[in-house]
Every structure is written in structure tokens, then in C-alpha cells.
Nucleic acid binder design. Structure first.
Lengths: 305, 305
DNA sequence: GCATCCTTGTAGGCTGGCTACATGAATGAC
DNA sequence: GTCATTCATGTAGCCAGCCTACAAGGATGC
């Protein structure tokens, strides 16, 4: 019985992939095969493991059984081990070379990427960057196809939904109030909630995390503010703020200084977002990835310091 | 460059096997293939890793280069990880079942095997035992084809030549002096070096570890003893000792009590051998193997206690 | 009820990895 | 020095495993 259920690295890897991506079709795409091929692999894996069901139908797709999850977890450890060996090999070959795939929030990239690219220019590490607006819940999806995902978290340095993932805080970025140069409030080094409710705001769509500071201001001042527009793009908001007396919430470091704009902290409020890097444990082992991550962290420290 | 040298679990496993067994032919035998097939695998591994030589000719055979050793070490970790997953799977399937291959020193088996077999009778674990006279230097060779190798060590609980191996001390077995019942020295609870040099000895061939006690006795007494015969088999020595006034060194627990024979410790000397189990790390992960090892350890404690 | 999205099954093709056999190099006995 | 032995390796050819292409069937949501 024991001899009939021999665990095979290939099958562990398949189940890990399935656990990460959720559907046979997604796995097939990621591994450059047809769904049929993946389905057949799954069937042989099940057969070789003594016929215990590893997946079960669920809706249109399928999900892992407990047995399947067990093996998928094993697959995670396995790929981590292989990646460690790969890292040592790369090191031995004297090369932190290779391409690191980065997916990043545009605003975080504004702050960090220039410095990171400069630091990596002298190494063999190449970055392949994609900028995406990533919701906090989508991080675990992105890490399947990118080595480093740069996102933000408003609850703390560890974002939600990162159970199996490696996370690294890069930067704690305070949220400030943006004012045009020459704005009546610009004379004060800090603004208060009471100051702010006197002006109209440019906000973000309801439910967007930046909105938390607006709500905090309303709570502190005891009355709501008037939101003129609800917009997403920070550069657009900057332009609008610079052209009126309206105010907006903007992150401190990602907002271009000058250009007729000033930032002021809100007195007594310590609102901030954490810029974090999220990685799959196996990807995190690669030497090139570690090098890139260290560059991001170093630049993050520079920005704060 | 990095993309051209991707580490593959299959190749790591091959190199680990080669590191363990030393020759392509031995690997081929162990994996039920022809040497040609193994040689080809080796070549493709080398090609896929960027053409760096992993092996180099050495005498009639070949040996690993530094690069090869690096990857072989990685292969060890890999097989350990896979074995851990396999163990969890077995556990999940509710079975500590399977066959455990044991190679053991006959004298150690005499003491331990009866109890171990009894303990394992109620489980699904089967033992497949081989008895071999194993020199301390051959342990690492034996573990390739056996899950548990029982050997002895005279230097301490960890035998020499077990760098990559898991070891477990089962039993510290004192070395005593065997006398026939009714022997002049049998009246004393302990014998001294001075007592012993008065009698002829049955010894072991020069260089055999038991000879250490004889040498210690000679040193303590200040003069050599006369060795009548140099023999290997303990049962034979027992029979000869029982039939004369000659004495011999025999291990305390593995020597059958009664039958006209008595054992006496040598005063002031604490000679002993360690009965140890030696395992390959990956084999040590298997649930059935762990169960069997625990049985050996428990019986060892019983014998001493 | 229809369009969509998913998985699964079948038939057939391709290729990677194997065997069989031959060759060549290093070693050690005589 | 010669010869037998013991390794590794190269070549040709075979076969199983894995993949694709295509079709079909179940679940979901408008």
C-alpha cells in the first residue's frame, strides 16, 4: 500500500500550482499546456497516490480536497527547496544575474523605482516592470507570475491575504493633505481637522483606502466635508488641487514636490500606508530576486531617512 | 545565462545518487537502468546547467567536481523534503505501514531484534533484515540500500564517516571479560588488569576494535598478555572460553548468559561500544522507518535499564 | 434558454529517455 | 609488456509517456 502511493515531485508541483491558481485552465496557461494535459496529469497523480481524490468538483471548476491541500503544501516546500539550491548554484556561478519580474503600484514605483534601477544598473540583475493598480486582495494572485509585487497596506506592514507569502515592508508613507501654494492653510506647518472641514475636497471613490483619512477628519471635526469629485489618479488630483482652494489626501513621498503644491500633515493623526513587497517563498530564494528586494528596501530606507 | 541554467529535481537526484554510490555503474544498478542511460542523463544535466562540468574523470571512474558536489548536496536536501512530504502523506493515510530494510551487526541483532520484532508485530511495519559484519568505514555505503544500518562505534555515540547521515545511539554496551564458570577469577565481582595478565587470552585479529581493551589491560598491568588465538566470531570464542581457563573480551549484553560462561567487568576500565543506528536523512523521514527506529531505541533503553 | 466558462474524454502524433551493442581508457596481475 | 577487468561513453533504434486537437458535458448567470 505504501509502495503504491509514492509521492512524486512533479505531482506536488502540479498541485501547488493548482492551489495557487485555482483552476485547471489557469494552470495550463501558466505552464504552456492545454487544460486537457493538466487534467490528465491530475488523474495520473491521483492514480499513483492510491486513488484518493485530490480534487473535487466545485461550481464550474474544482477545488482541492484535504488530501490535495496536504500535498500542495508539500509542493510549496519542495519548490522552496529547489529554489534555495538554484540560488546557491547561481551564487556559485558568480552571478546575481537574471530577470526579476516586478509588478508595482504606480505611485510606489514613482518613489522607489528610480533609485532601485540605479542601484541595480551595475549588477547583472534586470528588472521587468509592470505597473498595475493592485487591490490588496489581489496580491496573492499576482505573485504567481511576478517575482516581486509592490503593493500597499493600510492596516499594517503585513497585508491581508498573504498566508503563504513572504512580505517585506519597504516604506511607511504618511498620508498628508495637499494644498495649492498660497492656500490660506499653507502658512501653518500642520493643519487640523477643524481647518479642513471648511474646504471642499477632492476624494477617492467610496471604499478606497485613502478615504479612511477623510472619514477620520470628519469624525474628529464632528461634521462631514463636501467632496467635489471622487477620482482615482493622483496626478490628476494634484493638478486639480494646484488650481483651486480644494484639498485632497495624498501620500507624502509619491507626490511630486513643487509645481505649486504643498503637503501638510493633519495634526494629531498618524495616517499612513505601508508600501510592501510581497513574494512567493520560492521566488524569494533566487539570488537575483533577493538582490532586487534588497535594493527596494535600501531605497525605501533612504526615502524615509 | 540564468535562464539557461535551471536546476532540475531529477538532475539533483541523479547527482546525489552519484555522490552516494560513486560510480555510474552503481547508480545504474540501483535505479534499474543501464550505465549508458545514466551517462546520458549526466550529459544533459551538464548541458542544461550551462555546460559547467559536474564530473571529471578520476581513475577508471569519475568523481564530482565542486559544482557537482554543490548540486549533490542540494539533492540531499531535496530528497529529504520529498521524504518529509511522503511521511505526512502516509500519516494522513493513517498508515505507518511499509517495509523497512535493516542491515545489522549480528551481535547487536541478538540483543535488540527479538524485542523490536515483538513491538512491531502489532503495527503495519515489516522489517527486512540482513546481517552483515560491517566495518565502521562502510556504514555510509550501506545506507544507500538500507533504511536503518545498525553498527557499532568505539569512539563515542557518533561513528566516524557519518557526515551526511542521521545517527541515533541505541545502546552503550560495556565490554567485559568472559570466564568459564568455576574459573579462579569468577569469584571476584570485578577483575583487575593484574589478574588478567596471568591468563592466556582469546583475542581478535590485530586492529579489530575489541583489541583496544586488551591493549589497555597490558598498559595498566605493565606487561603483555599471551594471545592463544585471534578469532572473529563471538559464539566461537564463547565456546572456547567455556572450555578452558583462557579469557576473552566480550560485549556484555550480546553474550548469551549461562551456558557455563560468566562476564566480569575490568576494575577501573570503562570500555564499551556504542550500538548505533545510522540512517540516510531522507529515509529517516519515512513514518515506517521512524517507527522502527523508535522500537530499536526503546528496546535499547530496556536492555540498559 | 442561451452564452460562457470550466473540466474531461478520445485519438493520434512526437519526443525524451531507454536498451543493446560497440569502443576506448585506466588499472592491476602476471 | 600483455591481458583481463572495470569503468565510462557513443550510436542507432525502439517505445512509453505526455502532449495537442477536437468534441462533449456540467454549472452559472444574464
Amino acid at each position: 500500500m505504501n509502495d503504491l502511493s509514492r509521492v512524486d515531485p512533479r505531482h506536488l508541483d502540479l498541485l501547488r500550482e493548482l492551489a495557487d491558481r485555482g483552476t485547471v485552465t489557469a494552470v495550463a496557461q501558466a505552464t504552456h499546456r492545454t487544460p486537457s494535459a493538466v487534467s490528465q496529469q491530475l488523474r495520473t497523480a491521483q492514480r499513483e497516490l492510491g486513488g484518493v481524490p485530490l480534487v473535487e468538483p466545485h461550481g464550474r471548476g474544482l477545488r482541492l480536497t484535504e488530501a490535495g491541500r496536504l500535498l500542495a503544501d508539500g509542493g510549496r516546500e519542495l519548490s522552496r527547496t529547489v529554489a534555495q539550491v538554484q540560488a546557491r548554484w547561481d551564487e556559485f556561478m558568480g552571478s546575481a544575474s537574471g530577470t526579476v519580474r516586478v509588478a508595482t503600484l504606480p505611485s510606489a514605483a514613482t518613489v522607489l523605482l528610480p533609485g532601485v534601477l540605479e542601484r541595480l544598473a551595475s549588477t547583472g540583475v534586470k528588472l521587468e516592470c509592470t505597473d498595475l493598480d493592485i487591490a490588496e486582495s489581489e496580491y496573492s494572485g499576482m505573485v504567481a507570475d511576478h517575482d516581486i509585487v509592490i503593493g500597499h497596506s493600510f492596516t499594517g506592514p503585513v497585508p491581508a491575504g498573504a498566508e503563504h507569502l513572504v512580505t517585506a515592508a519597504l516604506l511607511r508613507e504618511p498620508l498628508d493633505i495637499a494644498l495649492r501654494a498660497g492656500h490660506p492653510l499653507a502658512a501653518k506647518p500642520q493643519v487640523t481637522a477643524r481647518d479642513l472641514v471648511a474646504y471642499e475636497w477632492y476624494g477617492v471613490p467610496l471604499g478606497y483606502p485613502f478615504d479612511g483619512l477623510r472619514i477620520a477628519v470628519e469624525t474628529a471635526a464632528g461634521r462631514p466635508v463636501r467632496v467635489a469629485q471622487r477620482l482615482r489618479d493622483n496626478r490628476l488630483i494634484e493638478a486639480l488641487v494646484a488650481a483651486s482652494d480644494r484639498v485632497a489626501v495624498l501620500p507624502r513621498y509619491s507626490t511630486a514636490p513643487g509645481a505649486g503644491l504643498m503637503l501638510r500633515p493633519v495634526h494629531g493623526m498618524d495616517a499612513a500606508r505601508w508600501i510592501v513587497a510581497i513574494l512567493r517563498p520560492d521566488h524569494a530564494e533566487r539570488l537575483a530576486v533577493r538582490t532586487a528586494l534588497e535594493a527596494f528596501q535600501a531605497v525605501g530606507r533612504e526615502v524615509v531617512g
